[in-house]
């Protein structure tokens, strides 16, 4: 089997780390060779962050390079645009349309790009877009945007649902488990 490459892109503090750990856990229990590459240090400080998940019979490099990602899961709209180059021809993007302004936009030195989804689609890219923040709030926890996106991704990867719910239980902090389970379900039903 060829290696499948997934990228999570977002803003530090959005929980890309937890998301990649949930998927990593699913892949381990499914019996794949897998690598999950995280970014620490600056990641809590609101910068642009990426984590990589790769699986297959044998995974070598832990990172994903330009033109290699089968899926890009974007937790924030502008970050989807920033990392488009990493998508493989024929790859798919799952995008949370939530907007978080980076500092140059906040200070007025730059503008937030307009019509991002349309511009990505115009490149011939297959896109699923949703407002994951709204769904997370519905689930009772605005921090569960990451888990909503995992629900959406689970439809694409198509493993047994029980693997995902087990992984969710293993990786979620206890206090957030209930809202995470709801958030995941809302993502699955998108």
């Amino acid at each position: 089997m060829n290696t499948v490459s997934i990228m999570f892109v977002g803003v530090g503090g959005q929980g890309t780390l937890l998301a990649s750990r949930i998927v990593g856990n699913v892949l381990l229990n499914k019996g794949f060779d897998a690598k999950v590459s995280e970014v620490h240090g600056m990641s809590q400080r609101g910068g642009s962050v990426t984590t990589y998940v790769k699986y297959g019979d044998k995974v070598y490099s832990p990172i994903v390079d330009k033109g290699e990602a089968d899926y890009i899961v974007a937790f924030e709209l502008m970050e989807a645009a920033r990392w488009v180059e990493y998508l493989k021809k024929g790859g798919k993007m799952l995008i949370n349309t939530q907007q978080l302004s980076p500092m140059p936009v906040i200070t007025g030195a730059a503008e937030y790009n307009s019509d991002v989804i349309d511009k990505i689609k115009a490149l011939g890219i297959d896109v699923i877009s949703l407002n994951a923040l709204e769904l997370a709030e519905q689930a009772g926890n605005d921090k569960s945007v990451n888990v909503v996106m995992m629900g959406v991704l689970s439809n694409e990867l198509g493993f047994d649902k029980s693997l995902w719910t087990d992984a969710l239980r293993e990786c979620s902090p206890k206090a957030a488990l209930e809202s995470n389970e709801k958030a995941f379900e809302l993502g699955v039903n998108v």
């Binding site: 910068g47 330009k66 970050e79 920033r82 980076p102 500092m103 511009k119 490149l123 890219i125």
Partner: peptide, 20 residues
């Protein structure tokens, strides 16, 4: 060899880390 890839058609503002 270079892998084929798409490029977003316009500049994207940088997102540097900031104080929380």
């Amino acid at each position: 060899e270079v892998k084929e890839h798409s490029v977003f058609p316009e500049a994207i503002p940088v997102r540097p880390p900031v104080m929380c």
